[in-house]
Design a protein around this nucleic acid. Sequence first.
DNA 1: GGGCGCATGTAATGAGTTACATGATTGA
DNA 2: TCAATCATGTAACTCATTACATGCGCCC
Lengths: 184, 184
Amino acid sequence: MENELLLLGLLRRQDMHGYQLTELIERNLSTCTDLKKSSAYFLLDKMAGDGWIRYEEVREGKRPIRRVYSMTQKGEQEFQRLVRENLAEYQPAVFGGDIGLAFVNAVPPQEACRLLTARKQEIEKARSNILNAPHREGPLGWVVEHQERHLTAEMDWVDTLLARLCETNPMPLSESDPTQEEKI
Amino acid sequence: MENELLLLGLLRRQDMHGYQLTELIERNLSTCTDLKKSSAYFLLDKMAGDGWIRYEEVREGKRPIRRVYSMTQKGEQEFQRLVRENLAEYQPAVFGGDIGLAFVNAVPPQEACRLLTARKQEIEKARSNILNAPHREGPLGWVVEHQERHLTAEMDWVDTLLARLCETNPMPLSESDPTQEEKI
DNA sequence: GGGCGCATGTAATGAGTTACATGATTGA
DNA sequence: TCAATCATGTAACTCATTACATGCGCCC
């Protein structure tokens, strides 16, 4: 329901048409969601069907017709319910990158270091993207700050891993050694 | 492909039947995945079809027939490819809880604090679960450590939020004040 | 005798993505 | 004139989940 919450939260501040919403999300809110255009259109349709929002078709000049959405009373109620639900819960994060890590012994230490260094660079890139983005005030700024903290922690974590993997094995074995692998 | 990687990585160490695999995953690897039984069975089927693994039907005593899976050469190749891919990439984490946070001004500060405190307790619970779990050595221990670090950071983050939200507004407004809300 | 654990699956459902379709306007 | 932007959507597909179905053996 996060996506619905997001759309409701945005429409709550001002009426918007679909394209405007989806551009806003993809351009300015990529730090906290990656909802795609067609998914958003689909949800807007659905929420209109459920009476959470309604729309008016508007033609401005010679541009294509826009569906300008606005919240209904029912939508506001749902929004109030959804924010509370979202604020009160914690959804455990699953880090897909940990699966590879669990089997890191299957690759020679030297190569593992090379690969993790590549990962580190991706994290660094994401982090600098955030640091270079325009500063935001209030809750939206906090969301960015949260992501920034997380990325900093991830950098730190990869560094720890590199230290454990490489510095203890400066001269790698010629091949991965299955006898060094652990039990589960 | 993380789920495939996980199954391959486990089968690489020793042959196992489906139930054994899925129990292992649900009981011992819940920190890094939440793959469900039927999904795992489905994937095992698929991978057998693709020739990554093969199985032998074995009946032990009067128990139900087991499909004991083992890796093929092709499976080992895929595994090697998938670990490297996984180690080298970083998949940006999206925190669903940040959507609610972005709209936290829609609820009265006092209530927001109550809700975030509930969230904090859930995080604390997850953290103590991990701290009380048996200690693991090597890469698997690292994965647990990663999760533990993350949960600790999340606790810290919620505390920061609570400080910003509650301590600056010890006496809440009677209702949420839309004029305090921000632009996007 | 009843419930739990073992063991494998199917079917229905859901959420979301990619790729595609359409068509007009604007700017280089 | 050609590409990009605006604007909305559909269809096919992927991936995973939930709920359900089956059936035997073991233990209380």
